[in-house]
């Protein structure tokens, strides 16, 4: 059974055009999949349809065999805690400490009362500390997140997602706001959790070279449709041009500079 199965998903925000227009694919356990495409292709919408931050207009999405589009509110909470998510802008609470932000990943398991007042068990705090050590932030656990660099913030985001004990990890442009160095650390961390913990990773990436380097499989999206789905080795220049359309020229230039 695939970890994630998306079938004929359409999403419209009203009006006649579709942000997603009949998207279908299946992802097996342990895969590292990159979704690439130009800005506005529907990559972010697609990712958010998987954990129903955005409701689909039609079609089905199932995670571990559960139909996300039909699940009840309490069922949705249970489903969401098995799906970790990290974001381009990290989406941490900057005024809280690093460890408090990591513990937010446990909220899906907490009652309203204990979660609201941040009453976490010793075991949960120890687990948060271990994860922070694993992502190399053991020195910063009591620092406010607002004081961290972008790369550090994204690693806090990863720890927050991992403490959920997810089977699937959604990454929405995880390195788009990072410098090349920090981006490499973040991508290496994602590869590590994919290989060592067996967590399936689905990442929206704007950078083709990162997708090529890290992903087992690449899904190219353009104007809400899947236009490519295959291993990085099949991603030829023509196909990149097909995926990115008019943006391709700029992209090639950037890629050229990177490899030069």
């Amino acid at each position: 059974m695939p970890v994630l199965h998306v079938e004929n998903v359409r999403k419209s925000y009203g009006g006649s055009s579709f942000a997603l227009d009949g998207v279908s694919f299946s992802i097996e356990k342990g895969e590292f999949v990159a979704i690439i495409g130009p800005s506005g292709a529907g990559k972010s919408t697609l990712l958010r349809c998987i954990n129903r931050l955005i409701a689909v207009t039609s079609g089905t999405v199932s995670v571990d065999g559960t139909d996300v589009t039909k699940v009840s509110n309490s069922g949705l909470r249970i489903l969401r805690r098995t799906v970790g998510m990290i974001f381009q802008h990290y989406n941490l609470v900057n005024r809280l400490t690093v460890i408090e932000n990591v513990l937010h990943g446990r909220l899906g398991y907490k009652s309203s009362l204990s979660g609201t007042f941040g009453l976490f068990s010793h075991a949960e705090k120890m687990r948060a500390y271990e994860l922070l050590q694993a992502v190399g932030l053991s020195e910063q656990i009591y620092q406010r997140c607002g004081q961290l660099s972008g790369g550090q913030k994204q690693r806090v985001g990863i720890a927050r997602a991992l403490i959920q004990d997810p089977t699937l990890m959604l990454c929405d442009e995880p390195i788009a706001s990072l410098d090349p160095n920090a981006a490499k650390i973040v991508m290496d961390t994602l590869r590590d959790i994919n290989q060592r913990l067996g967590i399936t990773v689905v990442a929206n990436l704007h950078q083709v070279h990162a997708a090529r380097e890290y992903a087992h499989r690449i899904i190219g999206v353009n104007a809400g449709k899947v236009v490519f789905d295959g291993p990085p080795s099949l991603l030829t220049l023509e196909i990149i041009q097909q995926i990115y359309g008019s943006e391709a020229q700029d992209l090639m230039l950037a890629e050229g500079e990177l490899h030069a």
């Binding site: 931050l53 489903l79 998510m85 989406n91 941490l92 609470v93 900057n94 909220l107 899906g108 979660g115």
Partner: peptide, 15 residues
């Protein structure tokens, strides 16, 4: 964004 992040992790309204 931070509200969205917590919703994505299964947090409820009070959380």
């Amino acid at each position: 964004g931070s509200i969205e992040a917590l919703r994505a992790g299964g947090a409820d309204w009070w959380h």
